[in-house]
Design a binder for these strands. Structure first.
Lengths: 243, 243
DNA sequence: CGCTTTATTGACCCGAATCAAGTAGAGTGG
DNA sequence: CCACTCTACTTGATTCGGGTCAATAAAGCG
């Protein structure tokens, strides 16, 4: 029996810098402890003080914030290869929930182990640091889209981002990928009402640039969608270079 | 003549963990190289590949993103003690400008020097990593406010955040601080039009919770403002503990 | 003291929220 | 196998928050 598919975190990091065999081995050891979460369940809750960090191996997870009046906002969507809460290694308490939007398989990585690895392999430490700064860059892109883009452009931007990110970890092909999320989830990512998301999605489909049937997104006109969403991939740091 | 006021970065870090004398010395050495920027000038531009990172010593700096149609969005406001672009140590190219909103004095810290320090003093390295994860946490708080809060609450949240952050680095007293920014800048941080910012500001003043005269913000009713802005300071990681 | 930038106000309009109702699927169980 | 239920999706009507446009007042500032 073959060893499990390549660790998606290795794919994520390898896209940005060379990852040595020793570093890969360290990551494999770090991510041995798997766990499953059913769609809709919370992996971590606001206020928790986790002793380990969660790496998504399969499925989609979201960072969810709840307001006093019950409103929800999703500040990030995480895919396989994403370290959802690596920052909890350094942070005090979780300032948000992490929720499984679909059934998820994750790896739990104990904080002391991570710390040990980063001290033994400083370059790998920097790569992990890098992954949290890419998170921050994605946050900024979302801020810009929330603050200054039309819903239509925002949605286009979101679909572009998801394509690139999923492609890197081998979950997209031919400008097409699975995105099994509800319009409710999407509304909470775009900061819109569900009704308006539905209408915006219809407008987007009407452009012919994208089809989104069931869980499958297919980008028919990549350049058009990129332009509509003013999507520049620079913030995802896709260049392979020494870090 | 006395040595310059304590490095605000040391204040920032000391609030979150003990910083040893050796670490402070290393930071002082790192931040010797000062430079001034006039209000309105760009310290770094989108697309740049900086060889050093900027620490704000005095003044206010913003991360500014420009869209195709000329719209501007500010994704973060930085104050003394903030490492504006520490992430450029790891990232490829700047995905945004860094602009001086007021006259600024900064320290330029060369990337090789930072790298060397973090390898020699891993704990200090983690503290710097921590500062970038706090940036990310602030980004998330802004995302939530942009997506799901009313302009009035958003503004209240913003003023609460600024008070806490400025207080930590000794730039606030008695719930009062200097915030010499224009309503134009504020509009680009809140994702609103200038006109609406002006009106919202009047509404906020009308609550009596805040006065903002000239450059001076005075919070008259901290608890009221906190509640209005649903401000929870957890995301700023104000607990001093081992990191 | 002009000149430019910022702050303020009013009129008008449009985009997005809200409210309400109905449709379509996917399970579930009798 | 079909009624029942739950959730997600869709559509229409209405309301309202916030944008846009335009004009004026008030600061800064060279």
């Amino acid at each position: 029996m073959r060893v499990a598919v390549t660790n998606p975190l290795v794919l994520f990091l390898s896209r940005r810098d060379d990852v040595s065999a020793e570093e890969i081995a360290a990551l494999e050891t770090l991510t041995l402890n798997h766990q499953d979460f059913a769609a809709g369940t919370a992996m971590i809750r606001q206020g928790d003080r986790p002793q380990s960090s969660i790496l998504v191996l399969d499925g989609l997870a979201a960072r969810a914030h709840y307001l006093a009046d019950g409103k929800r906002m999703i500040s990030a969507l995480h895919i396989p290869g994403d370290y959802v809460d690596l920052h909890s290694l350094l942070l005090d308490r979780m300032d948000h929930d992490v929720t499984a939007l679909t059934d998820c398989r994750v790896a739990l990585t104990a904080h002391p182990d991570i710390r040990r690895v980063t001290e033994r392999l400083p370059h790998l430490g920097r790569l992990l640091w890098l992954s949290t700064t890419i998170d921050a860059a994605m946050h900024r892109a979302w801020i810009v889209a929330l603050g200054r883009m039309s819903p239509l452009s925002h949605m286009a931007h979101f679909l572009c981002e998801m394509y690139i990110r999923l492609d890197i970890v081998g979950q997209a092909a031919d400008h097409s990928y699975r995105l099994p999320i509800t319009q409710i989830d999407l509304a909470d990512m775009l900061g819109l009402s569900v009704v308006h998301v539905n209408r915006t999605l219809q407008d987007l489909r009407a452009t012919g640039m994208v089809s989104w049937v069931g869980p499958t997104v297919s980008i028919k006109d990549w350049n058009g969608l990129r332009e509509l969403g003013q999507f520049e991939d620079a913030y995802l740091n896709l260049n392979k270079r020494p870090r």
